[in-house]
């Protein structure tokens, strides 16, 4: 199983070398689609018995320092996007989203090319282009739902 995930990561790392040119309009449409609508007066959900996996997915053994740094940065994204970027609220889901779209979005945020953006342009400027692209690939390689089998 771990091998399969490694292959997946490898595939997305290769993808990462290609450049995608996506019109900003399309990006916005993508963002809006992925943005869920939040119920204003938030309520607590019924507790679920089935938790997300303890551990995320997909990464090679012997990650390079750069990859380790990407993994560390990705952990902090969870504060708004949920653990492993799997939470869907008004703030978009990250896990298993198309890498090309996320790369283009992150770079567009950084270059102030995303209409209607709020906080992301301020945050994206804190990372290099390479880091943003790698973050996109990282989240893209995660599955939408956590894998219960990988729990402790």
């Amino acid at each position: 199983m771990r091998l399969a995930q490694m292959i997946k990561w490898g595939a997305s790392m290769q993808q990462s070398r290609k450049r995608y040119i996506i019109p900003v309009g399309l990006l916005v449409a993508g963002l809006c689609l992925s943005a869920g609508v939040m119920i204003a007066g938030m309520t607590l959900a019924e507790p679920e018995n089935e938790y997300e996996a303890v551990i995320g997915e997909a990464a090679p053994e012997g990650a390079t320092p750069f990859e380790q740094r990407i993994q560390m940065i990705a952990m902090s994204c969870a504060a708004c996007h949920g653990t492993d970027g799997r939470l869907q609220t008004a703030i978009p889901l990250l896990a298993a989203q198309p890498a090309a779209v996320m790369r283009a979005q992150l770079l567009a945020f950084k270059q102030d090319q995303m209409p209607d953006a709020t906080v992301m342009p301020r945050l994206a400027k804190g990372y290099t282009d390479e880091e943003l692209e790698a973050l996109a690939d990282y989240f893209s390689a995660l599955s939408r739902k956590a894998n219960p089998g990988s729990a402790l």
Binding site: I39, A45, E46, P47, A79, H81, G82, T89, I91
Partner: peptide
Amino acid sequence: RAWYAAITQDVWGTRFAF
């Protein structure tokens, strides 16, 4: 509000209904 839901999910595993 979405941030609050996300960070409390990430830290304590709390789940809010959406």
